[in-house]
């Protein structure tokens, strides 16, 4: 009952409500990460990343999906943390328990999709604050251009629109460069090997 409610919230732009409810699983995750040589800050980061992954997963999830919200979320945290540990080279080969993790394939599939966005997110950090704000209001909060113009302080809707396109253009340019860079890197890597 609660689960279908959370899915409904996530699918209908009420992620705030859903997330607030989902935080009840956070203490469990925090405990897991603290036990496995992590800190509280890291635990919170991992949990929030997992929330985002869950959100993205739920967006195109059918009603009869076998995925259980709590299991998916907690296992995502475990996988994310084991990846983190591997990156930090703190622990190797002790992931035997993770092999049997429920929804492991779905989680990893979703995590792969996330990777692409993660890279571009880093790019977006280089954008100006105003650009980020406009783009977020338009694409995430789905504000109307009139509303955005008022909030940012543009006299006309048109100038707000032009600003938005400019921002998008520079963001797109950065994303393109990024993908060229990573493509050429990948190319050079394959050449080397």
């Amino acid at each position: 009952m609660n689960e279908s409610k959370i899915i409904h919230f996530l699918q209908h732009d009420k992620q705030d409500k859903a997330f607030r409810r989902l935080y009840k699983y956070y203490p469990k995750v925090e405990k897991h990460i603290l036990i496995n040589s992590g800190s509280k800050e890291e635990a919170l980061d991992i949990f929030q990343d997992a929330l985002v992954i869950l959100y993205q997963k739920v967006q195109n999830m059918s009603a009869d999906s076998p995925i259980k919200i709590d299991g998916f979320l907690i296992n995502t945290c475990k996988l994310l943390w084991s990846n983190e540990l591997r990156k930090k080279k703190v622990r190797t080969g002790d992931d035997s328990g993770l092999g049997r993790l429920e929804f492991k394939d779905e989680i990893e599939e979703q995590m792969e999709k996330e990777e692409k966005f993660k890279i571009i997110e880093d790019v977006l950090q280089k954008l100006g604050e105003k650009c980020k704000k406009i783009l977020e209001m338009f694409y995430f909060k789905s504000f109307s251009m009139e509303n955005i113009a008022k909030k940012i302080g543009y006299k006309t809707v048109k100038s707000a629109k032009v600003q938005k396109y400019k921002c998008m253009e520079s963001a797109r340019q950065m994303a393109l460069e990024m993908s060229h860079l990573s493509a050429s890197q990948a190319g050079s890597n394959t050449e080397m090997s």
Partner: peptide, 9 residues
């Protein structure tokens, strides 16, 4: 996609 993801985050 990245912008939306940022918002979700």
């Amino acid at each position: 996609g990245a912008i939306r993801r940022m918002g979700v985050k």
